[in-house]
């Protein structure tokens, strides 16, 4: 059966993911092991409540009127939403074309997932970490080869404005110069929307 473990649903997010009212749906399961991850629950694919696309749709359609009125919809996060290809495809069939479906993703997933879901999703919020492969690996435990090839493919195949890339200052892992280098390279690649921000360690 087509199911997914979901460990969080957050309604009524305003101006967070684009122009409309959105609901965040957070999937369990993540390929990365970021040192500062706050959702370590998402590391365990078994954690959370099991949903079918139909059950999720039933639950989130309570806000359909807001979505339609403000061009909002669902932001799939996690965890790594792009691992849930069949689930998101089935969800799109249920919600129709008018809901905006976004993915908050690391893009560190097989290319096939990106290619398939690009016909389903309206936009991406890409958590890029740092473009320097050594920094990326030190922070996430994985290399960023897939991230870069997937990002480049997305930029080549569709409107670059559908992609927003988040570039964090990561204490003890990258410097301001590293962040600048990442931003410059992203701009050179054709990324039009970059969100630079600071991880805060308390």
């Amino acid at each position: 059966m087509n199911t997914a473990k979901i460990f969080g649903i957050s309604r009524h997010r305003l101006t967070t993911d684009g122009e409309g009212v959105t609901t965040l749906v957070a999937f369990s399961g993540c390929p990365l092991r970021c040192k500062y991850c706050l959702n370590k629950a998402s590391w365990e694919p078994e954690k959370g409540r099991l949903y079918t696309p139909e059950q999720l749709f039933e639950e989130v359609k309570i806000d359909q009127l807001y979505f339609l009125a403000t061009k909002g919809g669902i932001t799939f996060g996690g965890g790594e939403p792009l691992l849930l290809v069949e689930f998101i495809k089935a969800f799109r069939e249920l919600c129709g074309s008018q809901w905006q479906l976004l993915a908050e993703t690391s893009l560190n997933v097989p290319f096939e997932n990106v290619e398939t879901l690009d016909t389903v999703l309206d936009g991406y919020i890409v958590d890029i970490k740092d473009l320097n492969p050594e920094i990326y690996k030190a922070y996430t435990g994985k290399d960023n080869i897939l991230v870069m090839s997937n990002l480049q493919w997305l930029l080549q195949h569709g409107d670059p404005n559908r992609i927003m890339v988040r570039v964090p200052h990561i204490p003890d892992f990258n410097t301001d110069d590293d962040v600048e280098r990442s931003k410059e390279r992203l701009e050179k690649m054709g990324v039009t929307s970059i969100d630079e921000f600071q991880y805060i360690i308390r």
């Binding site: 979901i6 460990f7 969080g8 649903i9 957050s10 309604r11 965040l24 957070a26 970021c34 500062y36 991850c37 706050l38 959702n39 629950a41 954690k47 959370g48 409540r49 639950e59 996060g77 958590d127 964090p168 921000f197 600071q198 991880y199 805060i200 360690i201 308390r202």
Partner: peptide, 17 residues
Amino acid sequence: IGNDSVDEPYLLEGDVL
């Protein structure tokens, strides 16, 4: 994150660490 379906806090990277 909050409705009846959730029992885990959902925080995004960078809030507290």
